[in-house]
Design a binder for these strands. Structure first.
Lengths: 140, 140
DNA sequence: ATACAACCTAAACCTGACTTTAGGTCAATA
DNA sequence: TATTGACCTAAAGTCAGGTTTAGGTTGTAT
């Protein structure tokens, strides 16, 4: 089964320009061409693209995905490198989540603050710390 | 108490160029200048900067922070807008966290996979799905 | 008075992941 | 055969949030 770039684009919901961009970045080294220089994708390429999408979701940069593919092709001698890559990515993802959880607390406090302010028609709410006061944001 | 740009930079651990950038973007409208055109920061400016740092952590874009400051200055008539801003930010932050949690699961699976592969010296691990197989990534 | 660190500006550059543009080619249909 | 839609390339543009560069001014210590 083969596909044109337009078909792949619709199938995977990736824009044509993005597909060409990935190809140019060396992420799709296996894509064939017709005599007339037109890309012909097969199922292997489709799988490769789904893999890229997947790895991207984990927060991997395109260059790291390319590197990962290259290591995969090199075989078992690169297992350590691949392991290290994902350990690093795990740390990074956990750090991002922790930061966002923290941020979420602040945002939630803000939502609460403005909910009450809205009910009373003013931000001068007794019992709540001053809106523009540093302490509010830093300690909340 | 007043501070030079260099002092503020060290105090808040924000680079001088970033401080000048914020000023240029209109995020520090209150910063005074000497007759010789040199910035003089006071405690209000310091608080303002800490506020910016804080709002940035919540994922707010600089232009939204600027907008928020402007709304604060306009007074109680903008409470609804400010409330809406933070509700939106709450949604967005929750969405980001959910995506990262999902990504983390995949990364953890990868870490496990390579830990075992490392022990055995090969990625051909019986009982584990094939490394480069789509199904692994999509379902894991 | 002179050196020198710290300050100033505008404008160009940077990163990453694309998108857009301009100009041209290919392939299938009428 | 002519049109038209899908394809091709290289290169420039986009976004945010800065950093770097180039060239010039200020302020302070000796």
């Amino acid at each position: 089964m083969t596909y044109s770039i337009g078909e792949v684009s619709k199938l995977l919901n990736i824009s044509i320009s993005t597909l060409r961009y990935y190809d140019k970045q060396g992420l799709l080294p296996l894509v064939n061409r017709t005599e007339g220089n037109i890309r012909v994708f097969d199922d292997t390429d489709i799988e490769c693209l789904k893999m890229i999408e997947c790895l991207k979701t984990t927060g991997l940069a395109l260059k790291d995905i390319k590197q990962f593919f290259e290591w995969c092709e090199e075989g078992d001698s690169t297992i350590d490198k691949r392991h290290a890559l994902f350990l690093q990515q795990k740390e990074s993802t956990e750090r991002q989540i922790a930061e966002l959880e923290n941020a979420l607390k602040r945002v939630n406090y803000k939502c609460e603050f403005y909910k009450i302010a809205k009910e009373r028609g003013t931000t001068s709410v007794p019992g709540l710390r001053e809106e523009l006061t540093l302490k509010f944001l830093v300690t909340s």
